[in-house]
Amino acid sequence: MTAVTANANSLSWYEASARQRIDALVDAGSFAEFIGPELREISPHLAIFDLPEQFDDGIVIGRGRLDGAPVLVAAQEGRFMGGAFGEVHGAKLTGLLRAARALEQDVLILFDTGGVRLQEANAGELAIAEIMRAVIEARRAGVNVIGLIGGRAGCYGGGSLIAGTCSRLIVSEQGRLSVSGPEVIETNKGIEEFDSRDRALVWRTMGGKHRYLIGGADTFVDDEALAFREAAINALKAGRRCDVTVLEAEQTRLERRLQRFGAAEDAVEIWERLGIDQPTEIPGLPTGAFLRAAANRENADDAR
């Protein structure tokens, strides 16, 4: 077997494009794309709105190797239409997950999405539902589905529900995970409910550190492609069931979270209840110090 090498250069996951993330994540030179841009499988719906198209419709899918093991990979491009799910974009991920089940190959989903693409909202919403079902069917066939969250667009809306079906989630501080985005809450419920321009509020309510602390994500990494790669290699070693035992454990875990933190008005209160000495310092901590402070976090081991 040939030596497995990563593409060694330092690369900010947040700043990188979907294609750069894949290149940095999988073993060097191992990626082969399915339905590549040369096939021009563009969205048939954007022209109705006179909007520009992208040849891959904002998602790159294919196969590669991770530390030698064959994996299927999907990466969303958050800068094109906010990485949102439309008909073509969604169908590419649905097809990949169905293939994963048939081939019994693990899947890495590199989320970078605002949710459903409004210009094709019904098709996007149904794609989310189809993808969630395909994830669960793949997991029940013994396949790991790992989600990686750290892109510009975060992981919002239907994307966050898909993330919730994954067997493991890897997140960086920049990775926001939430159903309703800050602007959506403010627009619907008023600025008193959520001030979307208060960036510190956004990060501590929806950001990677908070999600890791409450068990909403399993691994916290630096905003570095190599850190995501190492975490993905480790995540593939973890369990892979999705049966009644796992969901019962998740039920207990999520009930406990409501009981423990349901009355909190702000993330800092939750961090205090987790026994963190200086909870207001959490947003500023570098990764090493943060992980030490997070020693008593809630976790989702075998309960996702």
Binding site: M132, R133, I136, E137, R140, S160, L161, I162, A163, G164, T165, L177, S178, V179, S180, V184, I185, N188, K189, E193, F194, T205, M206, H210, R211, I214, G216, C242, D243, V244, L247, E250, Q251, L254, R257, L258, F261, G262, A264, E265, D266, A267, I270
Partner: peptide, 29 residues
């Protein structure tokens, strides 16, 4: 979904996903 700071603070995406997963599990079982 309920659009509130509290629900998102508590990780609403996990709760909604969890409900969907239980229904998908039931169908599969």
């Amino acid at each position: 979904q309920r659009m509130s700071k509290r629900d998102e603070l508590l990780g609403l995406s996990e709760y909604l996903s969890h409900l969907a997963k239980t229904l998908l599990l039931a169908e599969a079982e």
